[in-house]
Simulated assay, not measured.
Amino acid sequence: MTGVVDFELDEPTLYTFGGAEAVALIQPGQILRTTTEDCFSGAVLTVDDLPSKVCQRFNPVTGPFHVAGAEPGDTLALHFTAITPARDWGMSATFPHFGALTSTHTTPTLQPPLPERVWKYDIDRQVGMLRYAARRSDFTVDLPLDPMLGTVGVAPSGGEVRTSIVPDTHGGNLDTPELRPGTTLYLGVNVPGALFALGDGHARQGQGEVCGVAVECAMRVTVAVDLIKDVPTPWPRIETDHQLISIGAARPLEDAFRISQHDLVTWVADLTGLDLLDTYQLVSQAGRAAPGNVCDPNYTMHAAIDTAILRHATAYGGAHRRLRGVASSLW
């Protein structure tokens, strides 16, 4: 089945994965076009709007969407065709006890907390650039626009309700820059209908999201949805035209790294039929690793390998290639 489902977000109301009724029904093979708000719920408009003063809640997501026929033990495939800034500006900030280079309740220090400060980025969608402007000097620099979604996930298992800020096996706040247009995200289904939601658009983000906040921006999102029956996915995975990527989420960062590497090694072994230690050796020499975020309640790491090295082994029955074809039918 093909077709397009349009869902326009009126205002942010969802800040969790799990615990909410579906807002729309999606059939496998259909395309969803929707909008997302920024992590500040649209409340930070100028550099004088301190999030602690103007925001009541953070990191809203759009959804959840019920996928017809999805059951626990299946895999949801989401192919992102377009992620486009809905505004010509984005916002970023520092917070007193948030980010990789400040004290937190789990990493206390005797230094005073960082000040809360806001930066505004002008976005030129036609040229594909955004402008960084220093707050304490006249320094500016243009950076390439690289839109992505920071938060995509499904309802957790066991009736659990998780805040949208926390990444885990269900997805959530992955903050992985590789979740950009042209990629397919695979998530294990935990409840009937999967109940996926998405949001937290970033006009761009550096690896690690070091200060804890990317260039946050409302987005227009187009995603092709499919369902892979009776195939479980233990941790979030991404497929691009050239890479397979496994994502791990945990604290400490070492555990997130190990989770992502373990998932990639076992995934590659399953796809290629290689012995487990042979696969471990191959991934050790040919793989790449990078942080998603090192600031949230769980950190995220990803492990990646080029599909050419695997002689173009086919993941999930060629779902990525198939969904690219479905998405291209729109244009």
Score class of each variant (00 low, 15 high):
Glu8Pro: 06
Glu8Trp: 13
Leu9Ser: 05
Asp10Asn: 07
Tyr15Thr: 01
Tyr15Ala: 01
Tyr15Phe: 04
Gly18Trp: 00
Gly19Ala: 08
Val23Arg: 04
Ala24Gln: 09
Ala24Val: 07
Gln27Ser: 15
Gln30Gly: 05
Leu32Ala: 03
Arg33Tyr: 09
Thr35Tyr: 08
Thr36Ile: 06
Asp38Trp: 06
Cys39Glu: 13
Cys39Thr: 13
Phe40Ile: 11
Ser41Gly: 05
Gly42Lys: 03
Val44Glu: 10
Val47Gln: 12
Asp49Glu: 05
Cys55Gln: 07
Cys55Asp: 04
Cys55Met: 07
Gln56Thr: 14
Arg57Ile: 10
Phe58Glu: 08
Gly63Gln: 09
Val67Gly: 00
Val67Ala: 00
Glu71Val: 06
Thr75Phe: 00
Thr75Ile: 00
Leu76Glu: 10
Phe80Ala: 11
Ala86Phe: 07
Ala86Tyr: 06
Ala86Thr: 10
Arg87Phe: 03
Arg87Thr: 06
Met91Ala: 14
Ser92Val: 12
Thr94Tyr: 00
Phe98Lys: 09
Gly99Val: 15
Ala100Glu: 11
Pro108Asn: 04
Pro108Met: 06
Thr109Phe: 13
Thr109Gln: 11
Pro112Val: 13
Pro112His: 14
Glu116Ile: 11
Arg117Lys: 15
Val118Leu: 07
Val118Tyr: 05
Gln126Arg: 15
Gly128Asn: 09
Met129Phe: 10
Arg131Trp: 05
Ala133Gln: 11
Arg135Pro: 01
Arg136Trp: 15
Arg136Ile: 13
Ser137Asn: 05
Ser137Leu: 01
Asp138Thr: 13
Asp138Lys: 10
Phe139Cys: 05
Thr140Ala: 08
Thr151Asn: 06
Thr151His: 02
Val154Lys: 08
Val166Gln: 12
Pro167Leu: 02
Asp168Asn: 13
Thr169Pro: 12
His170Arg: 06
Gly171Asp: 09
Gly171Met: 03
Asn173Glu: 08
Thr176Leu: 15
Thr176Val: 15
Thr183Pro: 08
Leu187Glu: 01
Leu187Ser: 02
Gly188Ala: 05
Val189Ile: 08
Val191Ser: 04
Pro192Ile: 01
Gly193Phe: 08
Ala194Trp: 07
Ala197Gly: 15
Gly201Cys: 03
His202Ile: 00
His202Val: 01
Arg204Met: 10
Gln207Val: 14
Val210His: 12
Val210Ile: 14
Cys211Phe: 15
Cys211Arg: 15
Val215Glu: 08
Ala218Gln: 15
Met219Cys: 09
Arg220Ile: 00
Thr222Asn: 06
Asp226Tyr: 02
Ile228Met: 01
Asp230Phe: 03
Thr233Lys: 01
Trp235Tyr: 12
Ile238Lys: 01
His242Gln: 08
Gln243Tyr: 14
Gln243Met: 13
Gln243Cys: 12
Ile247Pro: 03
Ile247Lys: 11
Arg251Gly: 08
Glu254Val: 11
Arg258Asn: 07
Ser260Cys: 06
Ser260Thr: 07
Gln261Phe: 07
His262Ser: 11
His262Gln: 12
Trp267Arg: 07
Asp270His: 15
Thr272Val: 07
Gly273Tyr: 04
Gly273Trp: 04
Leu277Lys: 14
Tyr280Ala: 14
Leu282Ala: 13
Ala290Leu: 05
Pro291Gly: 02
Pro297Glu: 01
Asn298Pro: 15
Thr300Arg: 06
Thr300Ser: 04
Thr300Trp: 03
Met301Gln: 01
Thr307Arg: 14
Ala308Lys: 12
Ala308Ser: 14
Ile309Asp: 03
Thr314His: 07
Gly317Leu: 13
Arg322Ile: 12
Arg322Tyr: 11
Arg324His: 05
Ser328Glu: 11
Trp331Ser: 13
